[in-house]
Amino acid sequence: MTDKLLQIAIDTALKAGEKVMEIYQQGDFSQYQKDDLSPVTSADIAANQIMIEELKRRSPDIPIISEESDAQTLSQRSRWQRYWLLDPIDGTGEFIAGSGDFAVNIALVVDGWPAIGVIHAPSHQYTYFAEKGRGCFKRDANGKEDRLQVAAYDGKRSLNMAVSRRQALANVTQYLHEHISFEHIPFGSCSLKSCLIAEGVADFYIRTGPTGEWDTGASQVILEEAGGTILDSEFNPLSYNKRESLMNPDFIALGNQNIPWREVVKPYRCQRDY
């Protein structure tokens, strides 16, 4: 049953990605600003509609939470044993800027934790996917699949930190211990940075600023199956569908668990009220 659901998630992400790329290549889209000042486009809305229609058709018994749809109240959601968690375009700013570093994200959350994750990067023609207990994989446009593993660590080399192209480096380096030697790798969307960690290109990523559970759901299982994890900025586990708000605290995406991460990143409390 779970294998079928993974295939549904992959198919849905690919279908939404085709629509996103059609709009992206035409360059004909509308742009808006949400209440939290984050951007949204007509491509986000179109992808959201495709994903919801496809998932309702193929898995009608599984409810859906999406960034671009109104969420039900916690009292309603808390009864769900499993649900789809969607981000139709992760990296809308990158979509608008034309960098290509955006992705379609789908997670299946089961008993409060992501069990399936799919991150499809339509511009790069890569699809990352994972299922709890069954590993993490990257598929290219030709259908070739590689199993992913976080980078090895011998305690000697510099660490590679994935960073945003659109955020001052000092915003994240302030949370590193002073003695840390690192290289930074600029890249686009939140979820694709986590994929860089899963495939061993980067070691970690610090995310400051507002994100939702849809930003981390697919990345969570992908990173865990590759040997990494995602924690909040105080090194506590994230939560899924446990609070009225679906917004995340600041978080850190981490690779090899043999790295003494508390000696790399300074734990800090995010002061925003979620």
Rank of each mutant, 00 (worst) to 15 (best):
S123E: 09
I259F: 00
I65S: 05
D35G: 00
P260T: 03
M161Y: 03
G255E: 10
N171W: 14
H124I: 07
N142G: 05
V110T: 12
L159H: 10
L254P: 00
Y153N: 00
V172P: 00
S158A: 14
I64V: 15
P122A: 15
R207S: 02
A202T: 13
T12N: 04
I180H: 09
F251P: 06
A162V: 04
Q125L: 03
P186F: 10
T41G: 01
A46C: 07
R207T: 02
S123F: 13
M247I: 14
W84M: 02
D203C: 07
Q271P: 01
I65L: 12
S99M: 12
V201I: 14
I116V: 12
P122C: 15
I206P: 09
M247C: 05
S123G: 08
A253N: 02
Y153R: 00
E145M: 11
P39D: 08
I119Q: 06
V109S: 05
E199H: 01
N236W: 09
N236E: 15
S69W: 04
Q33V: 15
F182S: 07
E131Y: 11
A218K: 01
D232L: 10
L196R: 08
A168E: 09
A226F: 07
L192H: 07
N171F: 13
W84N: 01
H120M: 01
E68M: 02
Q125Y: 06
L6K: 08
I8H: 00
F95A: 09
V150S: 04
C195M: 05
A198Q: 07
V40D: 03
G91K: 13
S189D: 06
R243F: 01
P88Q: 15
Q81L: 10
K4V: 15
Q72T: 02
Y268D: 00
D146S: 11
I259G: 00
L85T: 05
N160F: 15
R139T: 10
E183Y: 06
L74F: 01
I64F: 12
G228S: 11
R139L: 04
V172Q: 09
A13L: 00
A170Q: 07
D250Q: 08
V20T: 15
D215I: 14
S245A: 05
P210V: 12
R139V: 08
A168R: 09
K15I: 08
H184G: 01
L176Q: 11
M161F: 01
P63N: 10
I197D: 00
I185Y: 12
R269K: 13
E224L: 01
V110P: 02
R57T: 10
G188L: 03
S78N: 10
Q72V: 04
G143H: 11
E199F: 03
C270I: 11
S69M: 03
R77A: 14
V20Q: 11
D28F: 04
F251V: 14
T208H: 15
S194N: 05
L14W: 14
I89P: 05
R57Q: 10
E199C: 00
